[in-house]
Each structure stands twice: as structure tokens, then as C-alpha cells.
């Protein structure tokens, strides 16, 4: 509170930027909850497991629509699925770059699409198991389990990535997914 210069708007000063809108946050944590419930707590082959699966599918569908018509940071255009950018980003990290991405960083973007596709894959194979045509078919069940294993691996990687990037950029990413705001430290470059 000693200096007004600290609050002065400008590139170099610390500030909070609203990034994640409430719908993005709700969908994120709801999806995390459905994965946790179905993965760890709810009995497989129960009706509850099926219903939670459909809810997860619905959440992803809702998020995909929001990525088309939602605000700037929630849109596909804010985090295009580009392996090229991800590789460049990786190089930038290794060379000590501390640029802050307001939306997902290029690696995080790939993880987002990966998790959405995995959940859709789980939902589709899970639904197939309830149909007469595919009930008891081995490869469907194996695919469901393989995708689940991949999803868990992805979630662990996702959490590690969030922890790493929070440390690297100084922006507490987990907190920003709760409050919707990113705390941009002094003197950081934005992208």
C-alpha cells in the first residue's frame, strides 16, 4: 500500500487477469469429479457407473460447444491442437523462457484434447457394452480398460504439468481454475 506505482497499469506490474469463466471451471471440476467417482468409488457394471459416464460425456459435449461460442480464452482458437507449437514451447522451457500463456500453454492444450478424447472413448466403449450387439465382446471391454488406464496416466501427467508450470511461471494454475483469475507476477511476458 506504500506506492501507487505498484497498482499502476502497465506491462511490468503484477496484476490479476480474469481467464477462466465460471462455465469452464464448473465443467472442469465436474469432469474431474466424474472421473474420480467412476474410477475409484462407484462399482463397475452398476447403473450409477453408467449414469456418471453419460454425465461425463455430456460435460465434454457442453465444453466443446462452449469452445465454439464461448468467450476468448475458452475457445478452440485460444489453444489450437498443434504439436508444432508444443515442441516449440518445450524448447522454450528448456532454454529458460518464462513466458506466461493466458489460456492453456501449447503442451497443456494437447493434454486438454487428449483428456476429452479419452473421456469420449470411454463413454463410447462403455455405451457399446450396454448394447446387445457388443455385450460381452472382449475387444470392447479391453478397449474400455485400456482407455481408462491411459486416462489415469494422463490425469497424473496433467497434475504434474500443472505443478511444473505453476513453479516455472509463478502463476498458481490450480488456484486460477478455482477463482478464474491468473495472478501475473511482476515483469512477466504474456502470450
Amino acid at each position: 500500500m506504500t506506492s501507487i506505482a505498484k497498482e499502476k497499469s502497465g506491462r511490468a506490474s503484477a496484476r490479476e487477469v480474469a481467464v477462466w469463466d465460471p462455465l469452464v471451471r464448473l465443467v472442469h471440476w465436474s469432469l474431474a469429479l466424474t472421473i474420480l467417482l467412476n474410477g475409484a468409488f462407484v462399482e463397475e457394471e452398476s447403473m450409477t457407473h453408467e449414469w456418471i459416464g453419460y454425465v461425463a460425456l455430456g460435460l465434454v459435449a457442453l465444453r466443446l460447444i462452449w469452445a465454439l461460442i464461448g468467450p476468448k480464452h475458452a475457445r478452440f482458437s485460444a489453444f489450437p491442437p498443434s504439436p508444432m507449437r508444443a515442441v516449440n514451447h518445450l524448447g522454450a522451457i528448456l532454454s529458460g523462457d518464462r513466458k506466461i500463456h493466458l489460456s492453456h500453454n501449447p503442451l497443456g492444450a494437447l493434454m486438454v484434447y487428449n483428456i476429452w478424447l479419452s473421456v469420449i472413448g470411454l463413454g463410447v466403449t462403455g455405451y457399446m457394452m450396454t448394447t446387445l450387439t457388443f455385450f460381452g465382446v472382449d475387444w470392447v471391454e479391453e478397449a474400455h480398460e485400456a482407455i481408462f488406464a491411459w486416462l489415469i496416466f494422463s490425469v497424473v501427467l496433467h497434475i504434474a504439468g500443472v505443478a511444473f508450470d505453476s513453479w516455472r511461471s509463478g502463476v498458481n494454475l490450480a488456484r486460477s481454475m478455482v477463482t478464474g483469475r491468473k495472478n501475473i507476477p511482476m515483469g512477466s511476458e504474456l502470450e
Partner: peptide, 11 residues
């Protein structure tokens, strides 16, 4: 609140 309504209504 709007976001919550959207979520529930979408489901």
C-alpha cells in the same frame, strides 16, 4: 449462477 444453470440444463 448462469454457468450452473447451463450445466444442469445441458445434463
Amino acid at each position: 449462477i448462469l454457468a450452473g444453470l447451463i450445466l444442469v440444463q445441458a445434463l
